[in-house]
C-alpha cells in the first residue's frame, strides 16, 4: 500500500488502556487560559518518566465554556485510577490555581467515575473557602490574593487509550521534521486526542527494557536508529536517514483511529520513505491500530 508514493507498512500500532480526565480551563483572555494549560501539561510527555501524559485538546470559544470566557480543553492520562487524582491535585494546585484569572471545570460531566479534585484543593483556602451548588454541581471558591479561584468539586474519569503511534521514516532529518509538522498541524484540535510530546513529535522512540542496564524501563529504539544501522538488527529500509514518531492518546479508540488517518495522510509527502508503527508483538496493550486498515 502506498499514499503519495510513501509505503505504508503492513503492521499495527499497539496501544493500552489508560484513565483520562478532561479539564476545562477558562481565563479572562485566551492568553491566560493557555498560560495555565501550558504549565499544567508541562513535563507530561510519557508515563515512563512523568507519571502522566497530558496535552491541549483544543481551544474553546466563550460559547463552549461554563462561564462564557475563552477556554482551553486539556486531556490528562495516567495508567491507573489512583494516580489520576493524585496527579491532578498536585498539578492543578501548582499551575491553574496559581495562574491569574483562571477557573477550572470538569470536561467529562457524564462520566460516572468522579474524582474529588476540587474538594481536595479546597483546603488551600485554610478554612476560608466556601462552596456553591449551581445547577446541581458543587463549586469551590478559594480566596486568593487576586480575588477568588473557582474550581468544580469533582471531575469525571473515563477509560481512555494511550500509546497510539506512527513512525515517519524519511530520507533525511529535514524531510522527517517537515512531514511530522504537517501531521501535527493536521491532527491539532481533533476532538478526543492529544499529542503529549514536544510539538507533538518524538525523536527518541524507545523499546521496552534494556539489553545492558537492568534498571532501565525503556531505552533507545535501536532498530530504528539510523546511526546504528551497521551495528544492530536495523529495521530501516535503504535510504532512510531519519525517523520521527507521533504518539497519540485519546478518549477512545475511534478518536485515535481518526487522528492517525488524518496525520498519516498529511505525513505522506516528498522525502518520506515509509510510514510504520511501533508495537510489542501484541503483548503490551489490547488496542491494535492496523495502519492499512485505518487508511483503507
Amino acid at each position: 500500500m502506498k499514499i503519495n508514493g510513501v509505503a505504508i507498512a503492513d503492521t499495527f500500532a499497539e496501544a493500552f488502556t489508560m484513565r483520562v480526565a478532561r479539564i476545562v480551563i477558562t481565563g479572562r483572555t485566551a492568553k491566560w487560559a493557555r498560560e495555565a494549560a501550558i504549565k499544567l501539561t508541562g513535563f507530561a510527555t510519557s508515563v515512563i518518566g512523568c507519571k502522566c501524559e497530558a496535552g491541549i485538546e483544543r481551544e474553546l470559544t466563550p460559547a463552549e465554556t461554563p462561564d462564557e470566557r475563552p477556554g482551553i480543553s486539556v486531556l490528562f492520562f495516567t495508567m491507573d485510577k489512583q494516580s489520576l487524582p493524585e496527579q491532578l491535585i498536585v498539578r492543578l494546585g501548582q499551575t491553574v490555581l496559581t495562574c491569574p484569572t483562571t477557573a477550572c471545570f470538569d470536561g467529562l460531566p457524564d462520566a460516572p467515575d468522579r474524582l474529588a479534585v476540587g474538594r481536595a484543593l479546597r483546603v488551600f483556602g485554610d478554612g476560608f473557602q466556601a462552596s456553591k451548588v449551581i445547577g446541581g454541581k458543587r463549586y469551590w471558591r478559594l480566596p486568593v490574593m487576586e480575588g477568588e479561584f473557582l474550581i468544580e468539586e469533582t471531575f469525571g474519569m473515563l477509560k481512555g487509550v494511550g500509546g497510539g503511534n506512527f513512525l515517519i521514516l524519511a530520507d533525511d532529518a529535514d524531510a522527517a521534521l517537515a512531514a511530522a509538522e504537517a501531521a501535527v498541524d493536521a491532527m491539532t484540535s481533533l476532538p478526543g486526542v492529544i499529542l503529549p510530546f514536544p510539538g507533538g513529535v518524538v525523536r527518541s522512540g524507545s523499546k521496552v527494557g534494556s539489553t545492558r542496564y537492568k534498571n532501565m524501563v525503556a531505552t533507545t529504539n535501536d532498530p530504528f536508529d539510523p546511526t546504528l544501522r551497521a551495528s544492530t538488527q536495523s529495521q530501516l529500509p535503504e535510504g532512510v536517514n531519519s525517523v520521527l514518531e507521533i504518539v497519540l492518546d485519546g478518549t477512545d479508540a475511534p478518536s485515535i483511529e481518526a487522528a492517525m488517518r488524518t496525520g498519516i495522510t498529511a505525513a505522506c509527502r516528498r522525502g518520506v520513505n515509509t510510514i510504520t508503527a511501533a508495537n510489542f508483538g501484541g503483548k503490551l496493550g489490547p488496542h491494535h491500530f492496523h495502519l492499512r486498515k485505518i487508511l483503507a
Binding site: D67, E68, K132, G135, R141, G147, E148, F149, L150
Partner: peptide, 19 residues
C-alpha cells in the same frame, strides 16, 4: 472587604438566565 468580580456570581447569573 473588597470590590471584585466574583466568578461564582457570573456562573450563577448565567445559569439563572439560561436555565
Amino acid at each position: 472587604a473588597c470590590t471584585y468580580r466574583p466568578p461564582h456570581v457570573g456562573l450563577l447569573l448565567r445559569y439563572l438566565r439560561g436555565h
